[in-house]
Amino acid sequence: MAEPFKNFINAELVRSAANQLQRVDARFKAKPFVARVVPQLDALELKARALCVADALADALPADFDDATNLLERALAPVGVRDDAPAMHLSGDGLSGWFLWSVGEYASRRGIDHPERALTFLHALTQRFTAEFAIRALIVAHPELVYRSLAQWVHDDSEHVRRLVSEGTRPRLPWGLQLRTLIADPSPSLPLLEVLLDDPSEYVRRSVANHLNDIAKDHPALVATWVEKHLPGASPERRALLKHACRTLIKKGDPRILEAWGLGAKFRGTATLSIAPRRITLGGAVELTLDLTSTSKQPQSLVIDYLVHHVKADGRTSPKVFKGWTVTLPARAARTLTRKHAVKPITTRTYYAGVHRVEVQINGTVVAEAEFRLAL
């Protein structure tokens, strides 16, 4: 069984990090710090553990923020010693890895009143472990100052710093503080993303794609315009970035996005969906079988997704799009596609008994449907 995520921050990690901090500055009292943190860890999940350590750091580090960040910088591992795996790098080289999530949280809180020093520190921190969570409070409190720094960081030699420009400003970063002003108006970030669009690092480009996908959830037309501008003549690397950025809009069948990717043509042919078994209980699965027959004289590029209309508590239904298939159907050809769909309890959805309708859409248009009955 895989190690639980929460154990990325564990007692051994806390003890080793405390010793590193005391090694560079005897004022840091390792034993009281460890005694405060370790007894709390078992009851906490990963993010709560990171915040718990940050609370303890705030009390254990010098009260002067510049003094504290100087101490932390001396304790950091050299640039290039970066390990995001659960076994954090804690040799004599210094701190890197998951403990630095807590360090970033500390800098985010205490640095609000010292934003320039905080940004300098986060520039160093992100080269050992991402500062994408830490920078967000500074963006909220000091947007003009932060964006001036980000405009310089897009040209930084470190791919980790360049990635922070994109990842730290994502409007809806998972686990991160939502940037409501950027959800409402993402335009401040667009010039930065444009510089990073052809970044030599795939690590950076993937972040740009995820950032654009965030924007697409609230401003689909803006992203469609972006793709229409940047897709023609794009390199393979840029095409991959833009395709990943469009994944939500492709699933939703956005007509402009489908047209941009040459997927906007209406399916020419017949489609029949069947579901077996027709009745299942929660925890079971159904098999979807889609029979396609082309009536076109030309091959057809097809993006095929399916929508499950989940029954709600009041008897109404709510659709959820699931990724199906991407195929090229030859002229006058027939093809059968199958997919197993599990209906299992998950934390993000409550299932209710009743008839669940399934619709198949091809290139954004519904072409077939069937249904199954769910019992609890």
Score class of each variant (00 low, 15 high):
residue 3 E to S: 09
residue 22 Q to K: 09
residue 23 R to Q: 12
residue 24 V to N: 05
residue 25 D to Q: 10
residue 25 D to T: 07
residue 28 F to N: 08
residue 37 V to Q: 07
residue 38 V to G: 07
residue 39 P to M: 00
residue 40 Q to H: 12
residue 45 E to C: 01
residue 54 A to W: 02
residue 54 A to F: 11
residue 54 A to E: 07
residue 64 D to E: 13
residue 69 T to K: 07
residue 70 N to L: 12
residue 74 R to F: 05
residue 100 L to A: 10
residue 108 S to E: 15
residue 109 R to H: 03
residue 110 R to S: 10
residue 113 D to P: 02
residue 120 T to E: 15
residue 121 F to I: 07
residue 121 F to N: 12
residue 132 E to S: 10
residue 144 E to A: 11
residue 149 S to Y: 15
residue 149 S to K: 15
residue 158 S to W: 02
residue 159 E to V: 00
residue 159 E to R: 12
residue 163 R to M: 08
residue 167 E to W: 10
residue 174 P to M: 01
residue 178 Q to F: 09
residue 181 T to R: 10
residue 184 A to P: 10
residue 188 P to S: 09
residue 198 D to Q: 12
residue 199 D to I: 03
residue 201 S to H: 02
residue 208 V to Q: 13
residue 216 A to T: 09
residue 223 V to F: 06
residue 248 T to Y: 04
residue 251 K to W: 12
residue 252 K to L: 14
residue 254 D to W: 07
residue 259 E to C: 07
residue 261 W to I: 00
residue 265 A to Y: 02
residue 271 A to E: 10
residue 281 T to V: 05
residue 295 T to G: 02
residue 298 Q to D: 10
residue 306 Y to Q: 11
residue 320 K to E: 08
residue 323 K to V: 00
residue 337 L to M: 03
residue 341 H to R: 13
residue 344 K to Q: 15
residue 346 I to G: 04
residue 348 T to Q: 10
residue 350 T to L: 06
residue 357 R to L: 11
residue 364 G to P: 09
residue 368 A to R: 01
